[in-house]
């Protein structure tokens, strides 16, 4: 464990907690893509199957449970909470995310570290996480609504990406056999798509703040 990875895990967790608190506090999820949140929950469920079989550390186990619980809590809020679900932009959140699930699963069948169920699902979760933000990006392009996409959420999501890339550079430099090509290449693609999301977020945020200026 290095400081970059710890910071990356903390900012990743904070981004999920900040979003959950925002949705729960305002009882609104307008502007949030349920599909992206479902894909994130699927990423954690597919990746943390080894929760009960391989014990790596207390930290690792606790964080896996917290990631699964918090991402499912967001999906539960948006799907079932009587007040929140009314504010879901169902007609705008139309990205066909099943193609993302199918495509990344096929890729995981081809590109994996070992052709075992656990490794295929792990690679699937890595590829899926890279593209999971796409429904949110499309929804943001369509709605321009950043009410619930707080600046903190976007900041922590970006910090998570930055710290993980620093973590891989650090591990590559300090560990003789650090070769995690699947995680590194997919993580770089994920960071690129995040940068695109950040660009649309910044544009929308600027337009909204212009709109809100006193006439």
């Amino acid at each position: 464990m290095n400081i970059f990875r710890l910071a990356g895990d903390m900012t990743h967790l904070l981004s999920i907690i900040v979003l959950l608190l925002k949705i729960y506090a305002t009882k609104s999820c307008s502007g949030i893509s349920l599909k992206t949140q479902e894909l994130y929950a699927l990423v954690f469920l597919a990746r943390y199957l080894d929760l009960f079989t391989d014990f790596i550390s207390v930290y690792n186990t606790i964080m896996k449970v917290v990631f699964i619980a918090s991402s499912l809590a967001i999906v539960w809020c948006m799907r079932l909470h009587p007040l929140v679900k009314r504010s879901y932009d169902k007609e705008l959140d139309t990205f066909r995310h099943y193609f993302l699930i199918g495509g990344t699963f096929v890729l995981a069948l081809v590109l994996n570290e070992k052709f075992t169920l656990q490794e295929i699902l792990w690679a699937f979760s890595i590829y899926l996480e890279a593209v999971a933000i796409l429904p949110q990006l499309v929804l943001l392009q369509r709605s321009g609504n950043v009410d619930n996409l707080t600046g903190q959420y976007v900041f922590f999501l970006g910090a998570y990406r930055a710290f993980y890339i620093l973590n891989w550079i650090y591990r590559y430099l300090t560990e003789p056999r650090f070769t995690r090509w699947i995680a590194c290449v997919s993580g770089i693609v994920q960071t690129g798509i995040y940068a695109d999301f950040f660009y649309y977020y910044f544009i929308s945020w600027k337009n909204n703040s212009k709109l809100k200026l006193p006439a």
Binding site: D9, D50, D54, I56, E113, K114, E119, N167, R180, A183
Partner: peptide, 10 residues
């Protein structure tokens, strides 16, 4: 055969 690395990253 090469055992895949245990995935210690979250």
């Amino acid at each position: 055969d090469k055992q895949p690395e245990t995935h210690d990253e979250l």
